[in-house]
Amino acid sequence: MKRGIHRIKPAKKDRESLKSLGERLAKIFEIPGDVIGSRPKVTAIGRGEVMIENFKGIMDFQDGMIRINTQNGVIKVMGSNLVIREITSEEIIIGGKISNIDYDA
């Protein structure tokens, strides 16, 4: 029972995301997904900087944890002394000593 539910949910989500016209086009023409779709692009530079493009908004902002809402779910960045270096409507740059980047958290 539990297994069944578990199976249905991600399948539905996958189908939904694949339904997006831009993403399907990107897949056909082998264009990197971030160019057309609105899926988040997470770039980590060293340990001190994480840049997330195509985000929806911040859900939680604390000294040791930042949660960011994106189309593909919530991304949680953990670490110490976290700061938001820059935030615009398209991208957010997180600085500080980063230890985790979690999806679906």
């Binding site: 908004g57 902002f61 604390q62 976290l82 700061v83 938001i84 820059e86 935030i87 615009t88 957010i92």
Partner: peptide
């Protein structure tokens, strides 16, 4: 950020 106001160096 939605209103295109640039913020930087946000520290809790």
């Amino acid at each position: 950020s939605k209103r295109q106001i640039l913020l930087w160096d946000i520290v809790r």
